[in-house]
Amino acid sequence: MNPSNEWPLWEVFVRAKAGLDHKHCGSLHAPDAQAAVQLARDVYTRRQEGTSVWVVRSNQIVASDPGDKAMLFDPMEDKVYRHPTFYVLPLAVDHL
């Protein structure tokens, strides 16, 4: 098949149950948004994985450049003070 004739790619996000967030679970090809939702249901929720699906065109996602990983993310390695682990919480909010 000529790749230019292929259906566009969509990223699929599934919410396992009400109150939880939608989690990325994979991708699929579909001709349009409506078909993408239907096919996401058929491909990714066959075993009761979900109560809601989101789809988004893969080419609409703007991603960070893997080449920038060192610049973007490595500096966080030694910023331990950014973790809120140095506070003593009152007992009342212990399970926050």
Partner: peptide
């Protein structure tokens, strides 16, 4: 014709 519909038809 496509993998996604293959699964849908099986479902």
């Amino acid at each position: 014709p496509v993998l996604e519909e293959d699964i849908a038809l099986a479902n």
